[in-house]
């Protein structure tokens, strides 16, 4: 299913839950795991100085320092690694989201797993290019493969998930998210909740909608979900469709809660091309920071068009981690 998993870590406890999921998945699907940490921001022009993302201290970190960091990572995740041998540890200098994307592309990763990388944790990074927007948001937007963001303890293993929430805005990117959500749900036998939030604030700023007008829109959206997504599903009827009006991220969160969602799958809201405009962060970011379950962001078809959803060697093994 996922031949290569890129686990992008801040090397702080904030990423422990993500680490757990990443290692679990790698074990289950026999994936090779790439443990990746961008440890320092380049700074001061062409100079050799680097600002350590964890300590905020600037120094010339030579090649030896990189080795030390790798060793630290090795120890930090020793328990998770266990007897898994198909893994690599890498640490580089750079702007975190850029390097994660670069590595994902270079390694042709099938899945990126990361922690929330909440903004509080990267005070330097967000101001670094005088651009607002977190690493997670930028990775989510740029990656060609699904990005699984785990910020809270994940009580069940992925393959035991029973409720997958797919939130759509009917964009092209959302279709990729759908493919991922659907194939995953089918594969692990969970229920798929197809959900759309009617963004009334954005559609009709200033003017209140009549109730029946809203009803009509909701009906239209439901039909659209059927036409766009349900029509693509074969031999699968464990799904439900819902449309509610409100602010998208709020509605998705409420919905996921109500349905006991184990995973939210969505695309990076494409209309928020410019992260600077979305001062509070994109819908994805808001959802990630507030959801109690993991969130997968999928924007491109590359890795989800035809997921090989059958775990290869251990297809029969049902206990898992």
């Amino acid at each position: 299913m996922f031949e290569k998993i890129l686990f992008a870590t801040t090397a702080t406890p904030a990423c422990d839950h993500a680490a757990h999921v990443a290692f679990d998945l790698a074990k289950k699907y026999n994936s090779s795991l790439h443990l990746f940490h961008v440890f320092g921001l380049p700074s001061h022009g062409f100079g050799q100085q680097v600002t350590d993302v964890r300590t905020g201290k600037a120094d010339d970190y030579g090649t030896r320092y990189v080795e030390a960091i790798k060793k630290e990572l090795q120890e930090m995740y020793a328990d998770e690694i266990g007897d898994n041998s198909d893994y690599q540890i890498e640490s580089v200098i750079g702007v975190p989201h850029r390097e994660v994307l670069r590595m994902a592309r270079k390694e042709n990763a099938d899945l990126i797993v990361m922690g929330a990388h909440s903004r509080q944790e990267e005070p330097g990074a967000t101001r670094y290019r005088s651009v607002v927007g977190s690493t997670m948001q930028r990775v989510a937007k740029g990656a060609r493969c699904p990005v699984l963001i785990v910020s809270r303890p994940c009580t069940t293993c992925l393959w035991y998930f029973s409720n997958i929430i797919f939130g759509t805005d009917f964009s092209k990117a959302s279709y990729s998210a759908f493919l991922f959500a659907y194939q995953l749900a089918k594969e692990i036998g969970s229920k798929l909740w197809l959900f759309h939030a009617l963004d009334i604030s954005a559609m009709h700023a200033g003017k209140t909608l009549e109730q029946d007008e809203i009803e009509a829109q909701i009906a239209k959206a439901k039909q659209k979900i059927k036409d766009t997504y349900v029509s693509q599903m074969t031999d699968y009827d464990n799904y439900e469709i819902d449309v509610l009006e409100g602010i998208p991220y709020v509605e998705i969160l409420k919905y996921a809660r109500a349905k006991n969602g184990d995973l939210i799958v969505m695309s990076h809201h494409t209309r928020e091309v410019d992260p600077e405009q979305a001062l509070l962060g994109s819908t994805v970011e808001q959802v990630v920071l507030r959801a109690s379950c993991p969130v997968a962001s999928v924007n491109r078809p590359d890795k989800v068009a035809d997921l090989k959803l059958t775990p290869q060697a251990d297809a029969t093994e049902s206990e898992g981690g």
């Binding site: 001061h44 022009g45 062409f46 100079g47 050799q48 100085q49 010339d60």
Partner: peptide, 13 residues
């Protein structure tokens, strides 16, 4: 304030 290479030289930070 940082021209001529000034920015990048740690010795003269």
């Amino acid at each position: 304030g940082g021209g001529g290479g000034f920015n990048g030289i740690g010795r003269y930070r």
